[in-house]
């Protein structure tokens, strides 16, 4: 029995999904995770290192790895790539100046072989801020249409501040992963 089938079996039993949250600093990764878990989001310090949250979502257990986005610690992202089922890339839609940085880091990430099977959800966060780019505009800037055809991806607008759009995004992600891993469902 190959390793992959063992993992599939374990995961099937536990209905577990491993989700990696990444994006530039100040994009709102931690706020999204806490908001979706119904926790207080009014006091969140920039993430030094990473947080892990286990959330029961529908009938699945999500292990969400929320990794700090500061430049100094971005090189450690790759330590979290193994076994990732879903990748959530968070964009600060109001940070017009760093969209190039954002695109570059995302492009680098998607070259990563260990993430090649992961479903990709792009959150165009901070839609509550006036002047923020819309998800369609973000998709154009990031040139998402040019992505590898085998990748399952979706872009969704959201506001971690109000909570709007978060569930829709995660619904898609979880369904997409489930349809790949748990074919029988």
């Amino acid at each position: 029995m190959g390793l992959l089938s063992i993992i599939r079996k374990i995961k099937k039993k536990e209905k577990e999904m491993r989700i990696l949250m990444v994006g530039l600093d100040n994009s709102g990764k931690t706020t999204i995770v806490l908001k979706i878990n119904g926790e207080d989001t009014s006091v969140i310090s920039p993430t030094l290192g990473f947080n892990i949250k286990t959330i029961t979502y529908q009938k699945y257990t999500l292990n969400i790895w929320d990794v700090g986005g500061q430049r100094t610690i971005r090189s450690y992202w790759r330590n979290y790539f193994e076994q990732t089922d879903g990748l959530v890339w968070v964009v600060d839609s109001s940070d017009l100046r760093r969209l190039d940085d954002c695109k570059m880091e995302l492009d680098n990430l998607l070259k990563e072989e260990r993430l090649s099977g992961a479903s990709l959800l792009i959150f165009a966060n901070k839609q509550d801020i006036k002047g923020a780019l819309t998800p369609t505009e973000i998709a154009k800037v990031l040139n998402l249409e040019a992505m590898d055809k085998t990748r399952h991806w979706k872009i969704a607008g959201c506001s971690a501040y109000t909570g709007e759009g978060l569930l829709e995004g995660f619904d898609w992600l979880v369904q997409d992963i489930a349809s790949r891993i748990y074919m029988l469902d």
Partner: peptide
């Protein structure tokens, strides 16, 4: 930006703000 050198970058030229493939409006 010294730390940038750690990350292998495909485009070594630093990109000025306006050269994105898609025109972006300025924020106030």
């Amino acid at each position: 930006k010294p730390t940038k050198t750690q990350i292998p970058q495909p485009d070594t030229v630093s990109v000025p703000e306006k050269t994105t493939s898609y025109p972006i409006r300025d924020s106030p």
